[in-house]
Design a protein around this nucleic acid. Structure first.
Ligand SMILES: NC(=O)c1ccc[n+]([C@@H]2O[C@H](COP(=O)([O-])OP(=O)(O)OC[C@H]3O[C@@H](n4cnc5c(N)ncnc54)[C@H](O)[C@@H]3O)[C@@H](O)[C@H]2O)c1
Ligand SMILES: NC(=O)c1ccc[n+]([C@@H]2O[C@H](COP(=O)([O-])OP(=O)(O)OC[C@H]3O[C@@H](n4cnc5c(N)ncnc54)[C@H](O)[C@@H]3O)[C@@H](O)[C@H]2O)c1
Lengths: 211, 211
DNA sequence: TATATATTGATAAAAAAATCACGTAAAATC
DNA sequence: GATTTTACGTGATTTTTTTATCAATATATA
């Protein structure tokens, strides 16, 4: 039970359920059933049950789940119940968007500083977050004990930035560039490829056209 | 052969291979082997072969694939060889980042206009793309025959925006909000959940801590 | 209080995806 | 020219993920 591996897709789906359940709370609901969630997302109820079961949640027949409990269970399972600080490197288009976005608060990850090499960017404050020169990264990371790094710099710089992160004690990296930097095995790397989504879209369009 | 369904994961992986192969071309290489790609991404060579086989690509033993042919094959398979126009709704943080990003050109999708309801945003030009008032959407979409819509507006507006897109002849939607708007079955919807990636990261951190 | 109903969690079956294993072909080496 | 090596393609196998089935149980209703 403790060493069962969690399907990645389960982890991917849970935040969606979370958001939906939050909406239900906001509209005054107190309970939610697996079928309700499944129906909303057009997926199979059993899958929702399995996913929720991974978080340790236990429901009541005929009633479903108490929303507050369900939300807490998912939050806890995803590690959203503990706060952690993150540094972001690259305060360009995408970096600024992420810094300016408040929606990640719920995950307990808060961006506390941004870094860039461009003198025009350094010193600016975006959404309350200051942009520091890149050379201060290691010092500040070690001093503040930051463990999460976000890479939104130019693709060419990704490899070097990842290296800097590793030597600065960063253990988890969220990388938005299409480059796959080499990092030691004990460093967690999550690659977000916006390309991939677009690929699925254009492939589906192509498939339809073929019909 | 024509009606074999393509695994979604294959479609997700191909753009990564593509980018890597493009890098190889840039550094002067002429050939690539499945093992090379597999090695770079830390996955199984057979998987790379199977993925590439879906695109119709045939390699030579001992040599691998001619890079130019491989790139073309993937491009063609993903529908990146045909140009299509897209409208984006919501010229906020994320919308601006996407409009300002040149990296999607390779996919053949080009954003030709942005839309917003905020008077402060309307009229602005971002990266050569003008922001129009939302009420012009339907008219312009029909007139220009645009088939792809990108949603980067406030989550609350996503449902309404999706509706507008559907009645304006949009058949494929790329949605960045955490909301799942209802659309008819014949409309393709690709949901990009930045949350999900973050969830995987924080869950992995949690898993490691537990050890 | 008894009965019907909705929804659960566990287990089994099916489907899908990833990996393995093997035979073959092209190039390199002897 | 024969032999070795490397990488290919593909059917078989294993693993993972999803879907189906079903007994158990809490609530509602008669
Ligand atoms: N904007 C998007 O929609 C989008 C989509 C997909 C992927 N990406 C990827 O995200 C990355 C950033 O994209 P963007 O559009 O924000 O680009 P951008 O050019 O607007 O921003 C890049 C920033 O990184 C900084 N930078 C460059 N080298 C650096 C270094 N060595 N150290 C620290 N900072 C450095 C630059 O000064 C700049 O501010 C790119 O790799 C891109 O491929 C962006
Ligand atoms: N910025 C991020 O990093 C990020 C990450 C994940 C998800 N998202 C999602 O992307 C969406 C946009 O995020 P953002 O940070 O860019 O927000 P934002 O507030 O900066 O931008 C939203 C834009 O949408 C416009 N808008 C609002 N209602 C509209 C309507 N009915 N029609 C047309 N335009 C409308 C607003 O005027 C604004 O310009 C949100 O739903 C958010 O949840 C953003």
């Amino acid at each position: 039970m403790t060493d069962t591996t969690i399907p990645t897709n389960t982890i991917r789906r849970l935040p969606r359920y979370y958001h939906y359940m939050q909406d239900l709370v906001d509209q005054g609901d107190k309970y939610v059933t697996s079928d309700q969630i499944a129906n909303y997302f057009g997926i199979h109820p059993t899958q929702v049950r399995k996913d929720l079961a991974f978080t340790g949640l236990i429901g009541k027949p005929k009633v479903g789940h108490v929303l507050q409990e369900a939300l807490e269970s998912v939050r806890n399972f995803l590690g959203w119940d503990t706060n952690s600080k993150a540094f972001i490197v690259g305060a360009g288009n995408l970096g600024s968007a992420i810094i300016g976005y408040g929606g990640f608060d719920v995950t307990g990850v808060s961006i506390v500083a941004a870094f860039d090499t461009d003198p025009d960017k350094i010193g600016h404050v975006i959404n309350g977050i200051e942009v520091f020169p890149m050379r201060k990264f290691t010092d500040m990371a070690l001093k503040m004990g930051v463990k999460i790094g976000i890479i939104t710099c130019a693709a060419e710089a990704a490899e070097a930035v990842a290296n800097t992160m590793v030597v600065s004690g960063i253990t988890a990296i969220w990388n938005f560039t299409p480059v796959k930097p080499y990092v030691p095995e004990n460093v967690i790397m999550e690659q977000t490829e916006l390309y991939s989504s677009l690929a699925i879209l254009s492939r589906r369009i192509k498939e339809l056209e073929g019909k």
